[in-house]
Design a protein around this nucleic acid. Structure first.
Length: 824
RNA sequence: GCCCCCGUAGCCCAACAGGCAGAGGCAGCCCCCUUAAAAGGGGUCGAGUGCCGGUUCGAAUCCGGUCGGGGGCACCA
């Protein structure tokens, strides 16, 4: 039978503006109590999608994140929660400067222009944001609180300035955090990063390393791989700190080692060539050689340094270190294979049991002494270090102990001598905060020739960016803010004398490390965030975003949250209770890029298929965390389905929902129940499949029995449309209207599966013989094991399959399965 | 080099807690509608789960190995 409206066109664009207007008028997406309690008693649910950077219009990737977040927010709202689904913009950052340079305008107008474009695109996609949360990190009212937090950190000793070898991107003309360097290249522009010794601002995140690890216990609803990546990044290792005296020097030198058991095998000592310590230790007669080596080291890029097969080089510094365990004299070398900023920048070299040390020993002709017998050949012979466990040899009183016992015993002995102790070291470095850029938060510090570093008084915040009188890229290599001479000169807050402002701006990850705290009251002026808003909404119940932020943003946000907690400003230590990662939208197996020519334009997709079909396509393509290859999915398939739903809604002639066909009601409620369970498990793609199934069930019911006038059909169609509103909100409203109901469908909530309709009166039981299916029985769901066994053994098909063989065993899993095992 | 994840119809994906491998979509094929085509509607075909072995009455699911793909860290002492 042909449906009555089969030829009617489904126009996915016809009513979008109408529904947007209805939603806005009825304020359906506004949380009921942002900061003042309305006492409506609904549970609150804070659903946050990572905010966008306004680099242009929204792209496919944005559409995916916000489709996921919106489906979860809408589902929570439908099931009775008071939902806050906020939006803001991560609007400081380098691309604005680059664009401004190219187009000869200022970063602000480029940025805010893009924000307006994105806001309009969000609106037309029908994302259910509460727009009252809207914030931009580049607004002075926002970034003043970056400065406020900086001053707080500064007072607590958590913000500090030091000279250090740092990553410098020659293309972007700025330093980069460790986290922003990938394979020796600038994560943003791909230029090879250089090492420069510069004085920079840092946040002391390393002080929180252990807590960042420990509190992961609370993150049970985070993807396992994100936690693993963070653990990896923090890189905890346990070992010992050992103190070496240096001949003819008062100051001893500490090293960190994970293998204190190999202390007797140390045959030389190495310090990082680019560490200050190397310079300190260098004997006068070796000065020339050392300086020459240092120049070469500094010239090498990270790429060169990272090359795995690079031969070891170094210079003797003309000094000797004393092994605290046996008094041996160890020659001290400087080399670039030791890292200046890990541990203490110095290592005890045990060539027999560390491949790097062995390579260096071979290159320099230094002795190799085996002190752990691992059962492998002597490294001195083979050139292969033995790093495994074994028994100590050549280790004085410790000889004979195994690795584990030896470690403990040697640490104990060092402790007795006052020359060492067990300790923990982390790979994590302090967060390099300052950037030599314009479009960011100015660092609220004034440098005074007589008072030194002076914090800007809180009353003078915000330190605003100069709007004129600066150059974005000064030709003399200075930072942009150094060129803002009027802005630069200020009286010292302490002595009143002539002073100058700090000219660095903050990494934009500072902005994004706390924005979710401000959403409930973005206009709050008494602090960075409203404590009432925090109490009502935080921590974030559901955080959605890409895995590319697994380390950077998420680690920083966790850190800042802990700092604020420790100062009594937040009642929790972890900001995000549940994290959902979404994958990338790719095209033909590759990330979309202009150079590959495989860009898919979001606006074109929306124009072709409508916002709902684009959203459904993304959510149906697979689990949220999987990448979506746009070449593998079918937006036209989504359009077809949505059109079927609309036609179905138009074909329902029953005037009210209610009883009607029991059989149909059973199917409908079974599918409501299944979809609900899937939504609760965030299985959005499977949930949509269930709705498609429901559509087919209802279509058949309308075309055959019980027919279009059966109340059960209306019940099913209304349930379908209500559930659909999570994924295809415009179409759902269209369908609701076509069913003769009045807007908004959203206000009618999520359908309820009635338990009595979920009870089945019979199930199919599979009867196997030797694991092969031989018969099927329709049985009551609560059949007893004994009855079922008897029933199965009475089966003629089973009998035939047994072919006279005796029965060895019968496995019964009522009511679904019986397995008869014959004697062989 | 170290660590982790994933391999199910031509493709994207399902499969409760080890129990009938298939829910859904795309493509294909057939039929209907149509003057015709497109669009639409209805139906249908289709894999024994990368490979080898083990545990089990029973394995896509658990274990070991192997191949392939993806990811994280990487001179971190």
């Amino acid at each position: 039978m042909q449906s009555s409206s089969a030829n009617e066109a489904y126009d996915p664009h016809a009513n979008t503006e109408k529904w947007l207007g209805v939603w806005q008028d009825r304020k359906v997406f506004e949380a009921s109590d942002l900061t003042a309690d309305t006492g409506d008693g609904r549970p609150r649910r804070y659903v946050v999608s990572m905010f966008p950077y306004p680099s242009g219009d929204l792209h496919m990737g944005h559409a995916e994140v916000y489709s996921i977040g919106d489906a979860l927010a809408r589902y929570a709202r439908l099931t009775g929660a008071d939902v806050l689904n906020p939006i803001g913009w991560d609007s400081f950052g380098l691309p604005a400067e680059n664009a401004a340079l190219r187009r000869n305008l200022d970063p602000g107008s480029w940025t805010y222009g893009n924000i307006d474009v994105q806001a309009e695109s969000f609106r037309r996609l029908g994302i259910s944001f509460d727009w009252r949360t809207r914030l931009h990190t580049s607004d002075p009212e926002y970034y003043r609180w970056n400065q406020w937090m900086f001053l707080l950190m500064y007072r607590e000793g958590l913000a500090y300035r030091k000279a250090a070898p740092v990553n410098w991107c020659p293309n972007d003309q700025t330093v980069l955090a460790n986290e922003q360097v990938v394979q020796g290249k600038c994560e943003r522009c791909g230029a090879e990063v250089e090492r420069r010794n510069l004085t920079q601002w840092f946040y002391r995140i390393t002080q929180y390393a252990q807590r960042l690890l420990d509190d992961m216990d609370q993150l049970g609803k985070w993807p396992e791989d994100v936690l693993r990546m963070q653990r990896n990044w923090i890189g905890r290792s346990t070992g010992a700190r050992v103190q070496f005296t240096i001949e003819d020097r008062d100051e001893p030198v500490q090293v960190f080692t994970t293998r204190p058991d190999t202390l007797f095998g140390a045959t030389f000592f190495v310090v990082a060539a680019d560490a200050e310590l190397a310079d300190d230790l260098c004997a006068p007669e070796q000065r020339g050689e050392f300086e020459a080596y240092l120049v070469k080291t500094r010239a090498a890029t990270d790429i060169e340094r990272l090359a795995a097969d690079r031969p070891k080089t170094g210079v003797f510094l003309g000094r000797y270190a004393i092994n605290p365990i046996n008094g041996e004299k160890l020659p001290v070398y400087a080399s670039d294979y030791v890292l200046a900023d890990y541990g203490t920048g110095a290592v005890m070299a045990v060539p027999a049991h560390d491949q790097r040390d062995l390579d260096f020993a071979v290159a320099m002709g230094l002795p190799v002494r085996m002190v752990v017998d691992t059962g492998e050949a002597d490294p001195a012979e083979t050139g292969v270090a033995t790093a495994g466990l074994g028994a100590l040899v050549n280790s004085g009183q410790f000889t004979g102990q195994d690795t584990v016992a030896g470690k403990a015993a040697i640490i104990a002995e060092l402790g007795r001598l006052g020359l060492g102790e067990a300790t923990v070291n982390y790979r994590l470095r302090d967060w390099l905060l300052s950037r030599q850029r314009y479009w960011g938060t100015p660092i609220p510090i004034i440098h005074c020739p007589s008072c030194g570093e002076v914090p800007v008084p809180e009353a003078d915040l915000p330190v605003r960016l100069p709007e004129s009188g600066y150059e974005l890229r000064p030709t003399d290599g200075r930072a942009p803010l150094e060129s803002a001479t009027d802005w630069l000169a200020v009286p010292c807050p302490t002595c009143g004398g002539a002073a100058r402002r700090d000219t660095d701006t903050m990494d934009t990850f500072v902005d994004s490390s706390w924005y979710f705290l401000r959403y409930p009251n973005p206009g709050y002026t008494d602090g960075p965030f409203d404590p009432e808003g925090i109490r009502r909404w935080l921590p974030v119940a559901e955080y959605i975003g890409g895995k590319e932020h697994a380390i950077l943003h998420l680690l920083y946000a966790r850190f800042i949250t802990k700092v604020l907690h420790d100062r009594g400003l937040l009642p929790f230590v972890e900001p995000f209770t549940r994290l959902t990662n979404q994958g990338q939208v790719i095209m033909n197996g590759k990330a979309m890029s202009k150079s590959l020519g495989n860009l898919v334009n979001l606006q074109e997709q929306i124009a072709d298929y409508g916002p709902d079909a684009v959203r459904v396509t993304m959510l149906f393509a697979g689990p949220p965390e999987d990448d979506i290859d746009w070449a593998d999915v079918s937006p036209s398939g989504a359009v077809k389905w949505l059109a079927r739903v609309i036609r179905l809604a138009g074909d329902v002639t029953a005037s009210s929902p209610g009883e009607g066909s029991l059989e149909l009601r059973r199917q409908v409620h079974r599918l409501i129940d299944a979809t609900t369970t899937l939504m609760d498990g965030r299985r959005l793609n499977v949930a949509i499949a269930r709705l498609m199934e429901l559509t087919t069930v209802l279509r058949k019911a309308a075309d055959g029995t019980p027919g279009p006038a059966d109340p059960a059909l209306r019940e099913g169609a209304e349930a379908l449309v209500r559930m659909l509103s999570c994924f295809a909100p415009f179409t759902a409203e269209d369908g609701w209207e076509r069913l003769g109901r009045t807007a908004s469908v959203i206000e009618h909530g999520w359908p309820h599966a009635e338990p009595e309709l979920l009870v089945v009166e019979s199930v199919t039981c599979v009867v196997q013989v030797a694991g092969k299916v031989r018969d099927r029985l329709e049985v009551a769901p609560d059949i007893s094991e004994d009855d079922l066994r008897a029933l199965a053994l009475a089966s003629a098909k089973v009998d035939r399959a047994l072919a006279g063989a005796a029965i060895r065993d019968v496995i019964v899993r009522a009511p679904r399965l019986v397995n008869v095992i014959p004697q062989k």
